[in-house]
Design a protein around this nucleic acid. Sequence first.
DNA 1: AAGTGGTCTAGACCACCTG
DNA 2: AGGTGGTCTAGACCACTTT
Lengths: 255, 255
Amino acid sequence: MHDGPDRSPPIRIAIRDLASDVASAIIRDLIASGRVAPGQLLPGEAALASRYAVSRGTLRAALRTLQDAQLVSVRNGVGAVVLPRPSTVTEGLDQLCSLETYTRDTGASIATADLTWTQEPADDEAARQLQVEPGALLSVAHRVKLIDGARAGWGIERTPADLVPFEALQAEYAGSIMDVLLARPELGITHADAEIAAVPLPAGIARRLGVRAGRPAQYLEQVMLLGDGRPAQWGRAWLLPEHFRFRIRRRTPLA
Amino acid sequence: MHDGPDRSPPIRIAIRDLASDVASAIIRDLIASGRVAPGQLLPGEAALASRYAVSRGTLRAALRTLQDAQLVSVRNGVGAVVLPRPSTVTEGLDQLCSLETYTRDTGASIATADLTWTQEPADDEAARQLQVEPGALLSVAHRVKLIDGARAGWGIERTPADLVPFEALQAEYAGSIMDVLLARPELGITHADAEIAAVPLPAGIARRLGVRAGRPAQYLEQVMLLGDGRPAQWGRAWLLPEHFRFRIRRRTPLA
DNA sequence: AAGTGGTCTAGACCACCTG
DNA sequence: AGGTGGTCTAGACCACTTT
């Protein structure tokens, strides 16, 4: 399954195990190509394992990623049914993308105001979240988010300074450090863990947004993780609920 | 009254595979018991596999569920570190399970107060959410959620009356209609779509919870869907943020 | 009865971390 | 160098669905 000489990688490439390769191959050969139409069954596990020259265990791992991506539905005693593509593209908070991308996809206009760049040493909390030494240099950006011209939220993002050069970060920035990191596949970013809470809007942020302090705000905090599990970005945002509503698709575990 | 008519098939026991049993055993023996404190390493995979008399593959599957539940962090070449337990109740919102189920799994105490059952015709909004005719009969339950004895939230759930008999619903109820529906595999429930927002606590709910109106609350609304896409349950909840914190794992969409 | 997926095992080799 | 987790394999048996 491994094709091509992969003998000397000096740079850490995104983790691609055999199962991921097989999953991509199945998508390419059978699903995206339309050879197996929605509603039809994929070949059996044994046949697929033989076709791609992997063990059944590896093949099943590949099938599981297709299930997680809602591309197929596997039923015991039956097989793997190719699912229809949803007609409307609906993204929710369970998909990893920036607030900027998320909002733009909903058709609203989003922009940035009061953008500030700094480089500063990590305080204790930042060091804990990003798993770096206290005092390690971080690149920091904070800004007001405008929705259709209205001041709708404020957010701050931090990333270790040695991950992406400060100048490159600013050059490639288009409203979110997250997007810059996601656009670099060599970082191997697979997921982020977000936490949400309803909080009273802090006074300092209320002033920046021109609204009164203490009113309910949606707090959103997240740590984006590299393929090896190390944190790459720590972001916090306070959002006015009249401008932001989030949808989450909740799936049954143990598919 | 106990032995229902033959419409109820033999109750299917929740699937407990070996790996799940081992995961539970590790939690019980090593983590919940405090034998391995947060920050310390679990025994190695080989030792654990031998201890519980399973293969290393099965043991690794168990470890993965502990990872998904954020109980341990596994690092290559090092081992599995036990993570500190967050003090507030956190639910992985991207997983489909009731607040009751998740909270109980973490060992926190959750209970129900002021439970009220009714059957009533669907108003316009309920009819739209559940895709039934206005006036169709719904089973409705609302209740206060208690966390460690404190009044921490209020919620209301509606489900079409013809989906599950009213008496069965009440008989099988243990804090959440969601759980009753999820426990019936013949319904084929695969996912739910949830929406969240930060809102001022409405006066009527504040009175039920014994707190002042207007303070920030986490609003959570969700529609649970059958396998064929039809809505099966519509739930709304207002939760006090000091008792509930939500976590969401955001994944990169697949190719 | 036959074919499918679901689970479990034992063993092997590799990558990573630490002393 | 030795121990840890990460991946892959081949084979076995079981549960479920369909014929």
